[in-house]
Nucleic acid binder design. Structure first.
Lengths: 351, 351
DNA sequence: CCTCATCATGGAAGCGCTTGCACTATATTA
DNA sequence: TAATATAGTGCAAGCGCTTCCATGATGAGG
């Protein structure tokens, strides 16, 4: 038989240290004065035994679980095409640790999952708060509405346009698109096309607005033929129409880069000589394309910290008033835009 | 002020239904007979109020949290190159739901994470059991050893060769490689090369063994020059040496496919005419290459179900004796191996 | 040396649920 | 109908911790 380590309780630890459970608890949770014999003895015993308080008991008594949740409402296949979700998870895991919190991830691939998972996640005493990768993908998000109604402390990554009382952290897509277009204009491009997968996401609308603003500011007209909605490889008439306009620059989602490149290649267009390319999101992919892709990049680490900080604040002080924080984005200059220096790097102004 | 929904307790529910808390609890947990007035009344009240029992209180009293953990000991960047981890997470999430369990994912990108996360995860009363994506990547896994020592119910995906007492579910890489080689031999290939990233992983060793066995069975000698360890794009002498042998078939990790294809393309070798290709893992990538890649595929859904089933069994009946289950793999025939029919599909025998 | 403020400590009451035990209502059989 | 088995229910005791409150120890000021 293997030697199963005896499951100690706080009472055992207290007895071994010659103090009361109350004191042991306070020591373990850093609640007593620093100069104390009792404190030292308890810490000694804890170190020796490797004691960890029972999670459920602690949660029940303190009404805190010291666990945050990150809800990823997308099937695994989607996560692969939007890999910054993973980076987000990593960053948030880190940020939680800095506050002695643990982060649990929940994958929710389908509506069926939603029905089964949500009630369990929103149970009292399970997690203290929830971060949801929200409304970047759809402008109206019933999931966030549902969650918000449960009273669970909540922060959304991405702005849920129809839920003003939900706190969120978002990237300033409008300004980022504006700066990207300005950059292309500065490089002498004049026939700049915009390619988006869909205009439903609020993020896409912001980018379109930034694009328009960039052109308008220079007094350039916006030709609707230069705005293509839908994939490049799809038989989307819009994309074809766009190419027929002979654009000298293209602003597009990074994940479409391979398709776009192969289409341009087939059309014997050289990048960036004949046509400059700028991507929306700085996916790892951007560095692997040929030529490497100039892209807009969200400050994920900072956004992750902000999300966690806000959530902790909401857990401690309630969700009112809602907090809204918008982060400026970076433009990472690589070869595809035709800028001269590789090291040249240029930031958008704070939103 | 917003109307915060009053937090109900089981006692409230019981009172509203006119029964004792004990009965209410039993109804909610399906512990009483189906034909009972009390039962109906309780269910009614629960439905009306949307009551969910307090997670911590339930865990404390029942010594069960009804949560399983899936530990992913890799940084986000690694997950992207091994996307089947995500599929695994999805499959396991599903399997857990079928048993009224919830799955929490934990990302552990660094050793620092390990030190901070592990003690919290292994706390009593937090999760009932843990699935670890284990030793496919390293033959000796200190993480599994540490976890195993905590007494936490544990199942590994991948065989941890140095921990015979740890239960695991694994794929039969040896047989799969053997069958893949046999398949290539059946197609008339004789100069079959093997490309692996490293021989440290036990999985790679198994594949090598299967490769050797496949050749040996036909009485063919194994030329060590045909075995290349390391990446294709790296300046690995082994890979160059392998190509100089003019192989007519290559067996390799799927994630190396793009590199390999571009090298072959540069060498003006046609796939599959001049050289046939078979991959190790059926990543989504395999369908996007040109030509689409014939690969070995793990039965992820079945393995996920098995992992969860075993873990539940261990939670209920203890970890002794350890359970070991090995799954046969499929060979998914696509164009890269030069087999005639696309629909031809052929399975390895059970291991 | 004594009084009063200050701080560390212990006692004990929960946190909200599950479950063993004892008991009562109902069903079964003679 | 009485005797017995059976299912349904309630009581109350925890599960292992935190924290309010009261008490004892300690140190400062008179």
């Amino acid at each position: 038989m293997p030697d199963i380590p005896h499951d100690l309780t706080l009472e055992d630890i207290a007895r071994m240290a010659g103090v009361s459970p109350a004191t042991a608890s306070r020591v373990i949770n850093n609640r007593v004065g620093l100069r104390s014999k009792a404190r030292e003895r308890v810490l000694e015993v804890v170190a020796e035994t490797g004691f960890q308080p029972h999670a459920a008991a602690r949660s029940l008594a303190s009404q805190r679980s010291y666990v945050m949740g990150l809800l990823i409402p997308a099937p695994a296949s989607t996560i692969l095409t939007h890999p910054n979700v993973l980076q987000l998870a990593e960053v948030i895991t880190q940020a939680c640790q800095e506050h002695e919190y643990l982060l649990s991830l929940f994958l929710m691939g389908s509506d069926a999952d939603e029905r089964r998972i949500l009630p369990k996640i929103t149970r009292k005493g399970f997690i203290d708060g929830l971060i949801v990768r929200g409304a970047d993908d759809r402008s109206s998000d019933p999931l966030l509405a549902t969650l918000s109604a449960t009273g669970m402390p909540l922060v959304s990554l991405g702005r849920p346009t129809d839920l003003p009382h939900v706190s969120y952290v978002a990237a300033d897509n409008m300004t980022a698109a504006y700066h990207a277009v300005a950059h292309l204009l500065n490089l002498g491009r004049r026939r700049i096309g915009l390619l988006v997968g869909s205009l439903e996401p609020y993020a896409s609308q912001e980018r379109l607005a930034g694009y328009r603003k960039g052109l308008a500011e220079r007094g350039l007209p916006v030709d609707e033929q230069f705005i293509a909605v839908g994939g490049m490889s799809e038989s989307s008439g819009a994309a074809q129409r766009l190419l027929q306009q002979r654009p000298d620059a293209l602003f597009m989602p990074t994940r479409m880069a391979p398709d776009v490149l192969s289409v341009l290649h087939a059309a014997r267009l050289r990048v960036p000589d004949d046509i400059a390319l700028v991507g929306f999101d700085d996916l790892p992919l951007a560095q692997q394309t040929d030529p490497p892709l100039t892209t807009v990049r969200q400050p994920m680490a900072a956004m992750g910290k902000q999300l966690v900080g806000m959530l902790l604040d909401i857990v401690a002080h309630g969700a009112h008033p809602p907090r809204h924080v918008v982060f400026a984005q970076e433009l990472v200059i690589r070869q595809s835009c035709g800028a001269l220096s590789l090291d040249d790097r240029w930031r958008t102004a704070a939103g």
